[in-house]
Design a protein around this nucleic acid. Structure first.
Length: 425
RNA sequence: GGAGAGGUGGGUGAGUGGCUUAAACCAGUAGUUUGCUAAACUGCCGUACGGGUUAUUCUGUACCGGGGGUUCGAAUCCCCCCCUCUCCGCCA
């Protein structure tokens, strides 16, 4: 969530930035201000009475020790009213804090200056595009037909053993998945990211800290018997490694990479656009996560984009980079780039990566801070993450773009990992 | 899953109702001493949220795994929960 001090001290800027999301920023910020004022006044009041009560208790202790029982009794009688007053003030303070917290949770992150205003995906800005768009013959097949024809992708078996949207890969298809994961992990570790294998389930506190709860409750699979959520992305467990931590400035930047399967309910999405691997409930993804000083975070974001571009080039996929507009951006993000690859048989762009700077929005919930040697107080760090990359749609594009009469060609960079240059029947 | 023992600051660890304003030691940090290293000594050394001042700083409150309760007063007593360790059971 956004920092209260930012909302109070830079009210104009906060309102202006939030307005890009097409929300009533003024009303949201007014309410936050009122609740915060009430909270402060209540605490001042409560603290004063608690101080008085503490003083009285000390006095009673001293009197008892001195054997002055009567005076102690008199003092004790005076605590009754004070206790009642502090009890009701405590209740009021807790209720106000809760209301303020709940309210702040409904305010999305403030878009950064570069973010264009806009409501729909059509208003996103194409930053750049690279790679030749392949021209396939009229008989080009979408990936789900290729998978069936070659026998390495079985949507129907997934339906049988689990349900729709849970793909089964076999043979060369399974090997291709493993090759991509290994390739992405190697590239990330070469770039200085530390590899993490995190749990695939998290508790509610973790889901809250990175912003999945309460905003996206219905998007996650929930194991209610144990109160755990299946992760929708490795971002959740990996970023939460640093929840409630104060790191020394010298430890920054922290660069982590993790491969995990990702689970998403995707309730309500059906139709032609979700056929095959286009939108599934379980897919594999390699995620890069960074914890940075605020002054570096936007340069780092560009660096992460360059990393992802390198992967897409190595895979010889035509791609483009989008700068999301305020209306299309995720709830917790301050600026997001989406990377899309061209899927030649479907003739459409598929989102394969989303790279975001969360500024202090996540770290404020995480209580993730760092300490500069010359600063007295710890400061909130910036968190960033990006897919590098999400597999299912990468596989879809690879299959479609590289289909030939002889088989499906594997990009050179990947061949050391697959051990074969062509998927054959 | 069962039984027992535990959870205190960055670390070790004392603390069975007011003598704790959380001791002591280690680590860290600033200084003194000092040929160098080292050692000794002295000061500082948690977080959050308030209040008053604002080059400074003073001050209040809360926090001893989490949540409740008893009490004028709780790290300390009571209840519930979580976690760790040891043993048993089960198990890849």
């Amino acid at each position: 969530m956004l920092e209260l001090n930012f909302l109070r001290e830079q009210r104009e800027e906060a309102e202006q930035r939030l307005t890009k999301r097409n929300i009533d920023a003024k009303a949201l910020l007014d309410t936050a201000r009122e609740l915060d004022d009430l909270r402060r006044a209540t605490q001042t009041d409560l603290d004063a009475r608690l101080a008085e009560l503490n003083g009285l208790s000390r006095t009673i202790g001293d009197l008892m020790k001195a054997g002055k029982k009567d005076e102690a009794e008199t003092a004790r009688a005076r605590t009754t009213d004070l206790k009642a007053a502090t009890a009701s003030l405590k209740e009021k303070l807790e209720a106000t804090e809760k209301a303020l917290q709940d309210h702040l949770c409904t305010i999305p992150n403030a878009p950064s200056a570069k973010v264009p205003a806009g409501r729909t995906p059509e208003e996103n800005i194409t930053v750049m595009q690279e790679g030749a768009i392949p021209e396939l013959g009229a008989d080009a097949k979408p990936h789900w037909e290729l998978g069936e024809e070659y026998g390495f992708l079985h949507m129907d078996l997934g339906v049988k053993i689990t349900g729709a949207g849970f793909p089964v890969y076999s043979g060369q298809g399974a090997k291709l998945q493993r090759a991509l994961i290994a390739f992405f992990l190697d590239k990330a570790t070469e770039a200085g990211y530390r590899e993490i294998i995190p749990p695939h389930m998290v508790n509610a506190e973790s889901a809250f800290s990175t912003g999945q709860l309460p905003d996206k409750e219905g998007q996650m699979y929930h194991a209610t018997a144990d109160g755990l959520y299946l992760i929708p992305t490795a971002e959740v467990p990996i970023t939460n490694l640093y929840r409630d931590e104060i790191v020394e400035a010298a430890q920054l930047p922290i660069k982590m990479v993790g491969y995990t399967p990702c689970f998403r309910r995707e309730a309500g999405s059906y139709g032609a656009h979700v056929r095959g691997l286009n939108r599934v409930h379980q897919f594999d993804k390699v995620e890069i996560v960074r914890i940075e000083k605020p002054e570096n975070s936007y340069a780092v974001l560009e660096e992460m984009v360059e990393h992802v571009k390198g992967l897409l080039r190595a895979l010889e996929l035509p791609y483009r980079q989008l700068l999301l507009c305020g209306g299309d951006m995720g709830f917790s993000s301050a600026l997001t780039y989406d990377m899309e690859v061209w899927s030649a048989a479907q003739k459409r762009w598929l989102e394969v990566s989303s790279i975001s700077n969360f500024e202090t929005y996540q770290s404020n919930r995480l209580k993730l801070r760092y300490r500069n040697t010359d600063d007295k107080k710890p400061k909130l760090a910036h968190t960033l993450n990006g897919s590098a990359l999400a597999l299912a749609r990468i596989v879809a594009a690879l299959l479609e773009n590289n289909q030939t009469p002889e088989g499906i060609r594997i990009p050179k960079a990947l061949q050391p990992y697959t051990g074969f240059a062509m998927i054959t029947k």
